[in-house]
Design a protein around this nucleic acid. Structure first.
Lengths: 246, 246
DNA sequence: GGCGCTTCTTGATATAGGTCAAATCGGGAG
DNA sequence: CTCCCGATTTGACCTATATCAAGAAGCGCC
């Protein structure tokens, strides 16, 4: 655990946040809101919260208080079996909305932890509910985000249920690449924020298998990997790993 | 394809349906609605629709028109890879709500097919949206159902990502058992509506492996299986397969 | 009531990925 | 700058599950 340069762990206080002037707006609230409408949304984010690397945003069992939009940083969500086995259920980056697992039962059903120092916007759920009632585009947006999470989950099932190791890793890299691209980062060169172990957990593989798959890609000139740094040399080739050309 | 005893395939017409008098009410709409509130909900179900065994309720690519509540029968949802590989993403029975995968993009992202003759209540999505805005308990219920689907998906990821073959099958049987119990059926004796192949797809296993796991359970006196008929002899033993006693 | 197709079971064998082990690399702490 | 520990890579070997194959058992259909 690194000593903390500033005093306290978790929050950076009551500073009001305006979604209307947030650079991530198109990610969080892609629907076409008019200026006057945006003002209403501004009441939604109660406060920002800082989560340091290794800290939890929430844990399984915590009561639902808010949903969270990632402003910066990188996080993972895990579900855990009683016997301690843990399964990474997703990796999250800026613009992603977290916490929807808690709506059903009032308590979070997964752990979410920062993989690097991160900042989230906290949206109290009661306010979100009320605003989305009064303001149809927000309602639609919330439904869309939850639906997309379901679709994403189906994709992970497909990956876990019917792909081989190298296909899984290729799918994983292409997914990361695409998400970085959407956020304005390079789709071909980035740093992984997670360990091989965490990638393996997400993909249903052991860390050694992940490592070997990386090496194989490297040999085939598909990617250049040095530890956490990845450069995709041949995106088409990677896609071909996924769906061998027919 | 069996010849159809009645003429047309899919719908049984405009007969208005009243949720308020539906025996499945507690499954679809578990929140405590008052009588006067229920009347409003009655406008939600546009019509019933009959889906025969082997027919699709919707397919990937179909535009979103409605969400569906299963009134009777049994269905499966599948996602498919371009190359034809198909992954069963879920099995559904009465009271389950279907179609939420289409909200995000306006089109369904999975196929849903009846595994036996079934009947669903069709809830036009626009009406659902409007009603849930005007009527907070319904909004809450919709959010809950979507959230629970997300949590269910996390459970499937855990299963696919970190369990062995027999653990997966035990988890599957216990899950079915519990869902039958909630619906008032025997939790220890039931008929499977799906093939070994479909179970295998759902669990990320080949049909032979599913068959062997059944045989193994049979040998260990945990269940009695004859083809599609299952009787759980030792629920505790099955749970122990999942989480070996520690 | 028999036929034929699909589903299921079971056995033999192959293999992808897991497990165990060791060496190397890097990055943070002091 | 150096030490130390966790992360990563790589190799050797093993095992759970897939694959291939052959019957057997149901079930719908005629």
């Amino acid at each position: 655990m690194p000593p903390l340069p500033t005093r306290c762990a978790v929050d950076i206080g009551q500073l009001r946040v305006a979604c209307s002037s947030c650079s991530l707006r198109e990610l969080c609230l892609p629907a076409g809101f008019k200026a006057r409408e945006m003002e209403r949304i501004d009441g939604l984010v109660d406060q920002r919260r800082r989560v340091r690397k290794g800290e939890h945003l929430y844990r399984a069992g915590d009561p639902l208080t808010a949903l969270y939009a990632i402003r910066s940083g990188f996080m993972k969500s895990c579900v855990l079996h009683e016997d301690g086995r843990e399964q990474v259920a997703g990796f999250h980056m800026m613009g992603d909305l977290l916490g929807m697992d808690a709506i059903g039962g009032g308590h979070h059903m997964s752990d979410t932890m920062a993989l690097e120092d991160s900042e989230v916007c906290e949206m109290p759920f009661t306010i979100l509910e009320r605003l989305s009632r009064e303001f149809p585009p927000l309602q639609l947006q919330l439904h869309r985000v939850m639906s997309r999470e379901i679709v994403r989950d189906y994709g992970v099932m497909l990956l876990l249920g019917s792909m081989k190791a190298e296909e899984r890793l290729a799918a994983f890299l292409l997914n990361l690449s695409q998400r970085f691209a959407v956020r304005g980062y390079s789709p071909t060169e980035f740093n992984l924020r997670m360990t091989r172990q965490e990638i393996g957990s997400y993909l249903g593989l052991k860390l050694e298998t992940v490592s070997r798959a990386f090496s194989s890609f490297h040999q085939h000139q598909l990617v250049e990997v040095r530890h956490r740094h990845v450069r995709i040399l041949d995106p088409g080739g990677l896609k071909a790993v996924l769906g061998p050309v027919r």
